[in-house]
Design a protein around this nucleic acid. Structure first.
Lengths: 167, 167
DNA sequence: TTAAACTTTCAAAAATAATTGAAAGTTTTT
DNA sequence: AAAAACTTTCAATTATTTTTGAAAGTTTAA
C-alpha cells in the first residue's frame, strides 16, 4: 500500500470508529490526521485534506482542545495557528478516561443515587427497582474508581506489575 | 421521590447516556426498563410505557438480543412473547465488552496492521506515520487483551485480588 | 385449513445532528 | 487608526439516523 492511500484509509477508519463512540466523524478524522502528522498542521491544511469548511474545522478543533487532546502550536515566524495532537498514547487514554468520567459517569452516578432513594418502597416492584439501581450504582462507581486507579498507577511499579499479570 | 417518577427518570437518563455511547436512545431505554422490571415485560407494555411504535419496539428488542443482553421469556399459558434483561451486572459487562471487542476493536486492529505496512517508507512523513500507527496497534491490542483478561478472571481468586488492589 | 393473535419488515416521514459559508470578531502589522 | 490576515459564530441548509405504521410473515388454536 502507498503512503497516501494508507494515510487516507487510517483517517477514514478512525472517523467511522468515532461515530460508534459518540464522537462526530469530522472530529475523529481531524484527530487521526494530527496523530500521524509529524509537523504541526494549519487549519487551511486540515480543510484541504479532509475537504471540509472553515466553520466545521474551527468548531471541531475547539472540541478536540476541550477534550485536552489537541493543542495549538505556534510556528516561529508564522502568523496563523497550527495544531498538534497529544501523541503519547498513555496520556491520551488518561485524558479521555478522565474526561468521560467527568462528563458521563459522574452525572449518571448522581441520578442513580437519586432514584435509588424512592420513598416508602412498599410494592414488590418498588423494592426490586431500589435493589437494582443500588447494585448498578455500586457497580458503576467501582468501575469508575478502577479506571481512575489504572490510569493513575499506569507508570509506577505496581501498575507495571499488574499490567504484566493481566497481559 | 415517588416510584413512578424515579423509574421514569432512570429510563430517561439511561436513554440519554446510550446516545453518547453510540447506542440509540430507544434501545437504551428499553434496556433500562427491563433492567428494573421484576417480571418479564411484553412488547405491548414496552410500547405503552415508552410511547413508541410496534416496529420500533420490535427492531430495538432484536438489537438488544443480538447484543446478548436481553432474552425472550415465555410466560406459561401466555401466547405472546415476554422479554427480560440480563440482570447480573458482571455478566452484562462481560457481554458488552466481548461484543464491542468483536464489532469494533478487532476490525480497527486489522486496519491498523494494514496501514502500518506501507511500501518503501522513504520520506520522513511516511516513517512517522508507520511509527505512530505501529504504536497505536500495540496499544489498542494490549488494551483489548487486558479487557479480555479482566472479564475472564473477574470471578476467580486472582481477579478478586487484583480488584482489591485496584480499589 | 382457516382464522386469530401476534411479530417482523421496510419504504416513507419525522426528528436529530452535522455542515456550510458569509458576517462578525480578533489580533497583528503598517 | 486602518488595513490585512486570520478565526469564530450561527442561521440556514444538507445529511444521517430514527421512527412510524401498514402490509407481509409467522405461529398457534379451533
Amino acid at each position: 500500500m502507498q503512503f497516501d492511500e494508507a494515510k487516507n484509509k487510517f483517517v477514514q477508519t478512525w472517523g467511522a470508529l468515532g461515530s460508534q463512540w459518540g464522537i462526530n466523524k469530522t472530529m475523529a478524522q481531524i484527530h487521526a490526521l494530527l496523530m500521524v502528522s509529524k509537523e504541526p498542521v494549519s487549519m487551511e491544511d486540515i480543510m484541504q485534506e479532509l475537504q471540509i469548511s472553515r466553520g466545521n474545522a474551527s468548531m471541531n478543533l475547539r472540541g478536540l482542545m476541550d477534550w485536552g487532546i489537541v493543542y495549538k502550536a505556534n510556528k516561529p515566524g508564522e502568523r496563523r495557528e497550527f495544531f498538534i495532537a497529544e501523541k503519547d498514547l498513555d496520556e491520551l487514554a488518561t485524558k479521555i478516561a478522565k474526561e468521560r468520567s467527568k462528563r458521563e459517569i459522574k452525572p449518571a452516578l448522581k441520578v442513580l443515587k437519586e432514584v435509588s432513594a424512592v420513598d416508602g418502597n412498599t410494592s414488590e416492584e418498588a423494592k426490586h427497582f431500589v435493589a437494582q439501581t443500588k447494585k448498578l450504582y455500586e457497580f458503576v462507581a467501582s468501575a469508575d474508581e478502577m479506571i481512575d486507579k489504572v490510569t493513575e498507577y499506569k507508570d509506577n511499579w505496581l501498575g507495571k506489575l499488574m499490567m504484566k499479570i493481566l497481559r
